[in-house]
Design a protein around this nucleic acid. Sequence first.
DNA 1: CCTGCTTGCTGACCGCTGGTTGACAAGAGG
DNA 2: CCTCTTGTCAACCAGCGGTCAGCAAGCAGG
Lengths: 194, 194
Amino acid sequence: MQNDERRALLLERATELFGEHGYDALSMAQIARAAKISKALLYHYFPSKHKLFEAALMAGAIELRERVQPDPTLPPAEQVSTTLEAFLLWVEERPKAYAKMLESAGAREVRETMGQVRVDTAQLILAGLGPDGERPATRAAVFGWLAFLDAAILDWIEHGDMTRQELHAMLLATFAGALIASGAGGAPMVAGQR
Amino acid sequence: MQNDERRALLLERATELFGEHGYDALSMAQIARAAKISKALLYHYFPSKHKLFEAALMAGAIELRERVQPDPTLPPAEQVSTTLEAFLLWVEERPKAYAKMLESAGAREVRETMGQVRVDTAQLILAGLGPDGERPATRAAVFGWLAFLDAAILDWIEHGDMTRQELHAMLLATFAGALIASGAGGAPMVAGQR
DNA sequence: CCTGCTTGCTGACCGCTGGTTGACAAGAGG
DNA sequence: CCTCTTGTCAACCAGCGGTCAGCAAGCAGG
């Protein structure tokens, strides 16, 4: 079998399995068994479990980024709203996998990688806030809100008793509230995509 | 050495080490070596790593609960404010250990335990909110805010460029903002201790 | 046809982890 | 003196992430 073809196949299968079991409940031996190859061959294509997970994560992140790309012709507040909506739609398509990915963020080996993703996202939002984005309280508020976002989404997925529209409105209002609470003018809410 | 005495000593030492290294970066063999006993003896006192961690966590939780107990003679809004202040003071005394505990929450084996702690905390806050506490959006908002709280605290610990007063004001305003965003009246903010 | 090199692939192994077990030493009570 | 309980540990287990020597097959050159 060709090198690239097999690699792509393995990545696809691994992505699926990670989304089903999470990072630390899934062993390399299991992945190899599911793909009907030896563990050593799996290590031939991916140098470590951490890197394999990263590759699977990045594949998803690229697709997500395309889907939530804000429309720069819209006013800033609209951009935030539609980007958030696109994000929630994306989550709604794969709720269990998203939940497992959030869980996996706590695993020792991938904590730093996932943390970096969050830092990048926060930086994007902060950059859109202009000078307010440099104030420590605003930085903490944006980090806090990203955690709020994920926790609220987990609750949404788990209980299933809210509409996407309700959640969207609550998240958006909380974002504005957090910015105001941090002392930022909260004026030009420019979009931050994920 | 007496049974209870040794057990207490081991618990103390383990609490210290967990606060220093986190759950998954610390092995039972290391704990045993630090206490100058064999691993098997450690397992004689605590049936599993998970239970040992739980015991260490509970010891801290009891102390914390005493310190943040709200004064029921104060008006509800005051109770929230002073409880939050007491909590931040507690964190400020052991910032690194608190951060490590938050990190440890992601480890597979203790995730459920830590999740339960958070559910209990949320329940306490929701109970204080009266009828609004039963609305799905408010429940999600409270869960979200608890995550906001921890993320903002991590940012505060990591960067060290905010005063406790600033953080306190930001967290309190965000809490009110989240409640309003969830559609709750936000009126009688009754205290929820940790 | 044979030889030799590359390439895809594997079984067996390593050090570590959380967790278990059988046995030894010591003190108490008869 | 014997026995029973209690504290203690070395040695072991299966599973983990990760490594390595070597097999099998296809292709090139003589």
